[in-house]
Computed example of a mutant assay.
Amino acid sequence: MGVISAVLLILITILFPPIGVWAVAGCGADFLINICLTILGYLPGHVHAFYIIYVYYERKEAAIAGVIHRRDAPGVYSHRVNTGGVRGYGTLQEQSGPQRA
């Protein structure tokens, strides 16, 4: 089911980038930014939309593996995208660097 939804999301984003961003991030800053970028030029809207989708799926896979990122992705304002859509009820471990003694 995950692969089919990702393929459909990509096809929708190719046709109209703001709908792809809305499907992942919801109605918020990322959606409005993408609408503006699409109006300014079709290519910038696509680049932004695919970046949002990439960050969402990357963070979703990391969250399933039990890792959450401490920092938000640059240029992404949606909490849902930055967490990969996983709500995390204290069951996920933060990504840590080298262990200190």
Score class of each variant (00 low, 15 high):
R71D: 12
R71G: 01
P18L: 10
D72M: 09
Y54M: 14
V81T: 01
R71F: 05
A25C: 06
Q99F: 01
A101H: 10
G85Y: 02
A62H: 08
E58S: 07
G45C: 11
L40K: 06
F31M: 15
V47Y: 00
H69C: 10
L43F: 03
E61P: 05
T83G: 11
Y54Q: 13
G66R: 03
I68W: 10
P18I: 11
E94L: 15
G75T: 07
G97A: 12
G26T: 04
I19D: 03
G88P: 04
Q93M: 12
L40R: 03
A6V: 06
T83L: 08
V47D: 03
P44Q: 06
G2H: 06
T83P: 02
H48K: 15
P18A: 09
I53Q: 10
Q95T: 13
G26F: 02
V21D: 03
C36R: 00
I14K: 01
G85D: 08
I19E: 02
L40H: 03
Q93H: 12
G20Q: 05
L37P: 13
V67W: 00
V47M: 07
T13S: 11
Y51E: 10
Y77E: 12
Q99S: 14
I53M: 11
G85M: 03
V86K: 05
I19G: 02
V24S: 01
Y89W: 11
D30E: 03
C27T: 13
H69S: 13
R80W: 04
I33A: 07
V67I: 13
C36I: 12
I39A: 05
H46I: 15
Y57F: 04
G20W: 00
T83C: 11
G45M: 05
Y56K: 01
P44M: 03
C36K: 01
L37C: 10
G28A: 10
I52K: 00
V55K: 05
G84H: 04
R100P: 09
T38A: 09
P18D: 09
A29Q: 15
L43Y: 00
S78E: 07
T38V: 09
I4L: 14
R70K: 15
F50S: 01
F31A: 11
V47Q: 02
G75R: 01
Q95Y: 00
A63Y: 01
I4E: 14
I53W: 01
V76A: 06
A63C: 03
L40F: 11
I14S: 07
D72A: 08
S78D: 08
I35Y: 00
I4V: 13
K60S: 12
I4C: 11
G97H: 08
A65T: 13
A62R: 13
Y56T: 03
R59P: 11
G88C: 12
Y77I: 07
F31H: 11
Y77P: 03
A23E: 01
I10D: 04
I33S: 05
V76R: 02
